[in-house]
Amino acid sequence: MARTTPHDHPLAALTTLTDGRPLYFRVAARLLGELRDGAVPPGERLPGERRLAERFGVSRETVRQALEVLRRDGLLATDRRGSHVALPRSPAQSPASLTFPVGARAAEPRTGDRATVAWEAPPPDHAAALGLAPDRPTLVHRYTSATADGIGRRTAVSSFSAVALAEVEELARYRGRADGTGSAQLRRAYDWMRRAGLALHHRDTITRLADTPSVRVVRRVHDQYERPLEITDLLVDARQDALVYEFTLPAAG
Rank of each mutant, 00 (worst) to 15 (best):
A2P: 13
R3N: 11
T4G: 00
P6I: 14
D8T: 12
D8F: 08
P10S: 10
L11E: 04
L11A: 11
A12G: 11
L14M: 09
T15H: 14
D19C: 06
P22G: 04
R26E: 13
A29E: 12
L31W: 15
L32F: 15
G33Q: 09
L35M: 12
D37H: 07
G38P: 08
G38D: 12
A39S: 07
V40E: 13
P41A: 15
P42W: 06
G43N: 07
E44S: 05
P47F: 03
P47T: 01
G48K: 05
G48M: 08
E49L: 09
E49T: 09
E49M: 09
R50Q: 12
E54G: 02
A66H: 15
L67E: 13
V69Y: 05
R71I: 00
R71H: 08
L75Q: 08
A77D: 05
D79P: 07
R81D: 14
G82I: 13
P88A: 09
P88Y: 06
P91H: 11
P91C: 11
S94W: 13
P95T: 15
A96H: 13
A96T: 14
L98I: 05
L98D: 04
P101V: 12
V102W: 00
A107C: 00
A107Y: 02
A107G: 02
T111M: 00
G112E: 03
A115I: 01
T116L: 14
A118G: 09
W119T: 12
P123F: 03
P123L: 08
D125V: 05
A133T: 08
P137Q: 06
T138G: 02
T138C: 02
L139C: 11
V140S: 03
Y143R: 07
S145G: 12
A146S: 04
G150S: 03
R154D: 04
A156S: 09
V157T: 10
S158H: 03
F160S: 06
F160R: 06
V163E: 15
L165D: 02
L165S: 04
E167K: 10
E167G: 01
V168Q: 00
E169F: 01
A172D: 05
R175E: 09
R175F: 04
G176P: 00
R177C: 08
A178Y: 10
G180I: 09
S183E: 12
L186P: 04
R187E: 08
A189T: 04
D191G: 14
W192R: 05
W192E: 06
M193L: 02
R194A: 14
R195N: 15
A196L: 06
A199G: 11
L200A: 07
D204W: 03
D204L: 07
T207N: 10
P213H: 15
S214C: 15
V217T: 06
V218E: 15
V218L: 15
R220L: 12
R220M: 05
V221D: 10
L235F: 06
L235R: 04
V236L: 14
D237T: 13
A238H: 09
R239L: 14
Q240K: 00
D241K: 00
L243D: 05
L243K: 02
V244I: 11
T248L: 13
G253D: 14
